[in-house]
Each structure stands twice: as structure tokens, then as C-alpha cells.
Design a protein around this nucleic acid. Structure first.
Lengths: 334, 334
DNA sequence: CTGAAAGCGCTTACAG
DNA sequence: CTGAAAGCGCTTACAG
């Protein structure tokens, strides 16, 4: 069961490995290999089930037809959905995707980039955190295409795809206010990334623009890696200690924790108490009542990312960077 | 920014690449390299940030320190949790995991195996489907460790880790009956894998053992790749056309569709109508009322898998295969 | 129309 | 105690 090499095929076909290589790589015509030889070699390849060793190919050519996808947490449905869409689209162009989660840890992210680099990944799609600017710059200096998404990094000159979180959370708060809500809380996370900061700023600006007082005490910052039990406890405390008639959750998993807190408090969502979540989650629609949410158009985001990356991969020279900002939509469910 | 090779290090250190290689691979002592040389070379490696090219290393040694994980759907929380646990454990032993989803498609699964083979993956963890027996046998003949999990394949002689689904669904039905339920439905999927068949058989046997009539019409087989909207429609029809006072769902995503169907029908879960799900889902606990469920002990399963795979990887000879069956637990929530 | 040969970056048996 | 050389399986510039 020794696995076959190009040499074995060349031997069987009684031609040189050069000829076999040209045929495998679709360069037969260009190299003017005779039809008879092409047919013969293809037949032998087919019959023997020979598959070129990708490792050797990558080692020689320096590229791998692999795109690396680095996200916060691949088990979060926002990221897994994007990953799935990108994978499908990339596959059709002959690229495979390998992905991994950073868990918002700088060290882990650096290791991942280094690992992918070592495996000669052709291009990178990264949902970044602060502290890895240098590593990304190295990639760029190395002429590797890098697309940032979901979060931008101010000092990096590369393309970015993401939603407009400022205006999304501005609108969410506005919809609360139109419903007559006065004391609107925000439950968010403490990670210092643009996308999260924007959600806070949209919240704050909307409150102020509509003539309500901004209250620091209504904003709860949850540490990212905190145990969920602690998060639930903190949300319960917020809800018990303050007069609150509406809550905006800045991420889907915070909203889930929030719903658990409400359940434990036996506090109902109704005309006098509203909730809006972020991104989507299977539990939102199923919940009684269904949970309204700010949704990012996943398909559009995935499409924009893959377009940019394929364009850069196909180009010989560096393309001008683009900032693609896609509006998020407020979905009101009742 | 040319990336460094072992040659560059050898040059800088003024030694041969052989010596550098020995030092990198921890064979310096064994090869009796002098301490002075070791220190010097290590210093240069550190300062230059040199990382060995894994592709070249794999090409030469024939192994990659990568374990391939092939599951039905990585975005299902059962599989993503297992993947996460395995990843952590493997990482500590110097192995990386790459994973991908089969979506229960034979062709896609074959392609994945072939892809992983091409990338010289050292070992395989597979949640299999029928129709890939030959491909797995090829792997085994090639002396690659393969662990099957979640589902077994009768004619393959390799280790397996999974839960006892027969007794789990037997118990679930028993608990319905003890609660006075008489007309118990099963919503399951049509994929022909042992794990799903067992769930059906446990259901049927439990009904018969407790003196109830088994009714074919109370078992709904949902095609795996069917649109969710259709699934919800079929579940609604079942519930409307039949007298049913309890439903066992054979997978977590079917339970979610079932809950959506109940919501659309405005049918409440209460003393006279019960539901049990399978595996877990964030929405189960959050639901009002919370949904009882059959849970597989993820940590134990992951632990068993990784133990078996690491043992086989460390062994020079083929280890005897083991069938590890772990009991699933019925979690009653109210 | 086709092939011999160099080289990608490593590891390792062999020699000294 | 250390190194020269072969070889893993490919691709491609060059030659004819």
C-alpha cells in the first residue's frame, strides 16, 4: 500500500516526471505535449488513483491553496455561519479554509498566525484584537493578502469588512425610546475592539440625542473570559438595583446570559420591559416572547470578504485597500 | 523579509545544518553535541525568530503532528464541544487538530479523508457514515490510527467511543410512561447510522416492555438535509393529526424544530404534554418551561477518544481495538 | 514535442 | 564531537 508518487506514474507511462507534472497541472497544451501522451498519462493517473502530494507541491511553489480564518470563537454562531459561507465560496475556486479560535487572547492569536505562516497559508481572514498589529504588518510586508473583518485595526493598512455597529445600536436605543422607555441599560463586554466600542457609542449618543440623561450605572461591562454564572449574577444585580425598562445586549451570548438572569428573577419581557439582542441565536426566536435583535447580514459580509481575498490572490500587485461597511438591521420580533 | 531557513542558521552559527537540526529536535545530547555549540545555536535561533518549515519536515519524516477530526456538522454544539475538548488535550501533547464537516454526505467525506491523507495527517477521529468503510480500511491498512466515535461501523476493526443510546432512549420513554403518558411520539432522522437506529430501538422496546402498543404512525423520520421549514410543517402535522401526550426528539436540532412547531401551534408543554430532547442546546434550559434532555457526557467522551488516539500514536505496534461505551444521562428539568 | 537537473527546507544514516 | 550527502515529492527554467 505504498502511496504512489509522480515518479511511479512516469515509470508506468514511460515518460519523464516533467511530462507528468505538466499534464497534472493543466500545462500540457501550453507545453505542446502530444494528445496521445496526455491521454495515456491521464488514464494511468485515473486508474491508479494517484493524488499529488500537496506538501511537496507547497514546499516547491511556496503556496498552499489554503486560506486561514482566525476568529474569536468558532463555536459562536455568528462566526461559524460566516465560516461556512466563506468555505463554500472558497471551495469553488479551489481554496480550502482552515480555521481556529483566538478566544481574544493575544498570545494564542500570535501562535495561530505563526502556525499558519509555517503551513504556508496563502491568505488570511482575521477578526483581530489589539496587540497583534505587528504580526499582521509582518504578513503584509511578506505580501500575504490579509482581510480584517468584524473589527478593524486603526493603524493597519489593509482591507476591512464589517457592519455599522454605531448606527445599529443607535437605532436599537431609538426604538426603545419611541416605545416610551426611559431607563435603558446596556450589557456589553470589556474587550477593547472597535466593533464593541461603536456599540457603546451608538447607545450613548442615541440616549443623549433623544434628551435622556446618560447614566454610567446603566452600563454593565462584562469581562470576556468570565464564567457565565458570574455574568448572570451581575446582570441580576443590575436589574434588581436599578430602575430599568429596557436592555440592549451587545453580543448574542450576553443576551443568552441575560435571558437566563431574567428567568431566574422571574422577570417577564412585556410592554413595560423590553430587550434587544445582537446577532442571532436559535434561542432568540424560540423564546417566549421572541427576542428582537440587531442582525448583521452574514451572506453579504461573507461575500464581500471572499471577493476581496480572491481578487487580491489573483492580482500580481497589491490592490488598493477597501473599507466595506455594511449596515446591520434591527429585527423587531413580537 | 525573506523567511529564514536552517541553512541561514547554520551559516550564522558557523556549523553544519546537521548540527542545527539535531539541536532543534532535541537530539543534541544523544548526538553528543558540545554544550558550547548548543548554546550558541540556540541563541541564534532565538534572536532570529527562526521557525522550522513544517512542510519540509512533514515531507521528509512522513508525519505532521496533526490529527484530523471529521464530524457530521461542526456547528452543532455536540460536535463543537467535543472538538474543543479534544483540541485542548491534543495541544498539550504537541498535536494540532484540523476539522471539517461531512454533512452526512458520502462523497464529501471521501474527499475529506483524501484531503487529510494528502496533508499527511497522523491520525483520524471520525464520526462516520455508512459507505466509507473502504476508505477507513485503507487508512487502517496504511497503519494510520483511526478512532470512530458517536457512531460505529460494524465491519471495521478499530476502536470506538460512544454513548449507550439504546438504554438512554429506553429510559426517556420509561420516564414518560411513569408520568402516565400513553401516546408517545418519536421524531428522528432518516440517516442510517447505528447511533440513530439505537435511539429508535430503545424507544420501541421501552414502549412494548411497558405494555403499550407500538404505533408506526407516531414515529416521524425526517430526511437529514431537509429544509427546516418543511420539518416544522411535518412535526405540526404529526401533532395535529394524532393523539400525542409526549414526544422524544432524537437530536438537538430536531428538538429545536419541534419547539418552533409547538410555538406556532401555541401548544404548551405542561402536565398533559411532555417533551424530551437529545444532547443539549442553549435554548433547552432557557425555554419556558425548561426542556428535559438526554445528555452525553462530553468530557468523558473526549477524554476516552484522546487517550486512545495518543496511546496508538505512541505505540510502535497496532494496539488491540477497544469499544468504549459511556452511559448517557437523562436530565429532568422543570 | 519531451527530458535531465536543480532546488524548495528539512532529517538521518553513515563516515570520520 | 561534527559534517557531507542522499532523499522526501514535487515544479520549472533550460536545453534540445
Amino acid at each position: 500500500m505504498k502511496t504512489l508518487s509522480i515518479k511511479d506514474i512516469a515509470l508506468k507511462a514511460n515518460v519523464s516526471i516533467t511530462t507528468v507534472s505538466f499534464i497534472i497541472n493543466g500545462k500540457a497544451k501550453e507545453k505542446a505535449i502530444s494528445d496521445a501522451v496526455i491521454k495515456k498519462v491521464q488514464k494511468i493517473i485515473k486508474e491508479s488513483g494517484y493524488k499529488p502530494n500537496q506538501l511537496a507541491r507547497s514546499l516547491r511553489t511556496g503556496n498552499s491553496n489554503i486560506i486561514g480564518l482566525i476568529v474569536e470563537d468558532i463555536s459562536n454562531s455568528f462566526f461559524s455561519s460566516i465560516a461556512r459561507l466563506i468555505e463554500d465560496k472558497a471551495y469553488k475556486k479551489g481554496y480550502k479554509i482552515i480555521y481556529s479560535s483566538t478566544e481574544n487572547k493575544i498570545e494564542k492569536t500570535k501562535e495561530l498566525i505563526s502556525l499558519f505562516k509555517n503551513r504556508k497559508v496563502d491568505a488570511y481572514i482575521i477578526s483581530p484584537i489589539k496587540g497583534i498589529e505587528e504580526d499582521i504588518q509582518d504578513l503584509l510586508n511578506d505580501n500575504k493578502p490579509v482581510i480584517l473583518f468584524d473589527r478593524n485595526l486603526p493603524n493597519i493598512n489593509t482591507s476591512y469588512v464589517g457592519a455599522n455597529h454605531f448606527s445599529a445600536s443607535y437605532q436599537a436605543v431609538e426604538s426603545f425610546i419611541k416605545d416610551g422607555k426611559q431607563n435603558i441599560a446596556l450589557v456589553t463586554t470589556d474587550i477593547d475592539v472597535q466593533q464593541i466600542v461603536e456599540r457603546f457609542e451608538g447607545y450613548k449618543k442615541s440616549i443623549i440625542d433623544h434628551g435622556l440623561p446618560y447614566q454610567d450605572g446603566l452600563v454593565l461591562n462584562i469581562p470576556f473570559s468570565q464564567e457565565e454564572a458570574t455574568t448572570i449574577k451581575q446582570i441580576k444585580e443590575l436589574l434588581q438595583n436599578r430602575t430599568i425598562d429596557a436592555v440592549l445586549f451587545a453580543t448574542n451570548y450576553l443576551a443568552i446570559s441575560g435571558l437566563k438572569a431574567l428567568k431566574e428573577l422571574e422577570k417577564k419581557i412585556n410592554e413595560s420591559f423590553s430587550v434587544i439582542g445582537y446577532d442571532d441565536h436559535e434561542a432568540f426566536e424560540l423564546h417566549s416572547p421572541s427576542i428582537s435583535t440587531i442582525q448583521q447580514p452574514l451572506e453579504e459580509i461573507a461575500e464581500a470578504i471572499i471577493q476581496l481575498i480572491l481578487a487580491q490572490l489573483a492580482a500580481k500587485t497589491k490592490l488598493p485597500e477597501q473599507q466595506v461597511v455594511i449596515p446591520a438591521k434591527l429585527i423587531i420580533r413580537n
